[in-house]
C-alpha cells in the first residue's frame, strides 16, 4: 500500500498545464485590438491594389498566429496538436492549389451562376 501515495505524487508531477497570467492574456488581447485598428486604418488610407490585400491578409495571419499560439496554448502544448493544425493548412493549400490549376486556366472560364 505504501506505493499508492507515491504514485499519486508521480501522477501529480506530470500535471503541468500551462497557466497564463492575467497580464499575459490582456497583453495578447491588446495586441489583437491594436492589429485590428491598424488593418482598419490601412484600409482607409487606400494603398494601391495588390498591397492592400497583402497587408490585410498579413495582419490577419499575425492575429491568427497570436490566437492559436497563446490563447489556444499551442506554444506550450504537445507538438502533435501543432502538427494537426499544420497538416490542416497543408491540405487547405493543396485544395486551393489544385482547384485553381483548373479554374484559372479554362478556355471558357466563367460559368453562369
Amino acid at each position: 500500500m505504501s506505493t499508492a501515495p507515491h504514485s499519486s505524487e508521480a501522477t501529480h508531477s506530470e500535471h503541468h498545464h500551462h497557466v497564463s497570467s492575467a497580464t499575459f492574456i490582456w497583453l495578447i488581447g491588446t495586441a489583437l485590438f491594436v492589429l485590428t485598428a491598424i488593418t482598419v486604418g490601412v484600409h482607409f488610407i487606400h494603398i494601391p491594389a495588390p498591397w492592400n490585400i497583402i497587408v490585410a491578409i498579413g495582419v490577419a495571419v499575425v492575429k491568427a498566429f497570436l490566437v492559436v499560439a497563446f490563447f489556444m496554448n499551442l506554444y506550450w502544448d504537445s507538438k502533435f496538436n501543432s502538427l494537426l493544425l499544420v497538416m490542416s493548412i497543408v491540405f487547405l493549400v493543396l485544395l486551393f492549389g489544385i482547384t485553381l490549376l483548373d479554374t484559372l486556366f479554362r478556355a471558357d472560364p466563367i460559368p453562369a451562376f
Binding site: S88, I89, L92, L95, F96, T99, T103
Partner: peptide, 25 residues
C-alpha cells in the same frame, strides 16, 4: 484538435469558393 482540423477544411471549401469567384470577377 482533430475536430478543429475538420472545421478548418469545412470552412476551407467556402474560402476556396471565395478565391475562385474572386479570380473570375
Amino acid at each position: 484538435w482533430v475536430f478543429l482540423v475538420t472545421e478548418i477544411l469545412f470552412f476551407g471549401g467556402l474560402f476556396l469558393a471565395y478565391i475562385v469567384y474572386r479570380a473570375w470577377n
